[in-house]
Amino acid sequence: MNTFKLTFTLNGEVTEVLAEPSEMLVDILREKMYLTGAKKGCGKGECGACTVIMNGEAVNSCMIPAMKAMGAVVETIEGIGNKDKLHPLQESFINEGAIQCGYCTPGVIMSAKALLDKNLDPSNDEIKEAIAGNICRCTGYVKIVNAVMSASQKIKG
């Protein structure tokens, strides 16, 4: 098989992994790095469940060929916080009931983080736009938008 050595920065660590050129980043994360936080809801870039941040931008990792991740800085849900030190978005999502089945949650949080990394004072519409590519079938988005808003206020202090 025509594999190559993919080198990229994953959650702050320089990572090397053997990949096939046809492989997508989501499969490398899930199948090879055992980081299953990024979910596969469609495999076609339509649902956003696999959203990660690559070089500062929220991307559908199911649409990123392995080659494109070469040398990139990739952040996944597992890298932004843990139970002892949650990211403010994770904290808000928990506190404000923005999580139901949880399948879309990692992707939504990563899209929201990409927004807040650049804009700490988003309007409701800007939040909705940032997560427009993330389908949630459970919440009606009400508590998700509220949680992103309150996380932005928390980060601002």
Binding site: G37, K83, F93, I99, G102, P106
Partner: peptide, 23 residues
């Protein structure tokens, strides 16, 4: 009471296990 969901922490940190994650 608005008790925080027991599943929320695992789901917010990407640790929650679903059938599609099984290996």
């Amino acid at each position: 009471k608005n008790i925080k969901r027991n599943d929320a922490l695992e789901k917010a940190t990407g640790k929650a296990m679903f059938s599609t994650d099984m290996n």
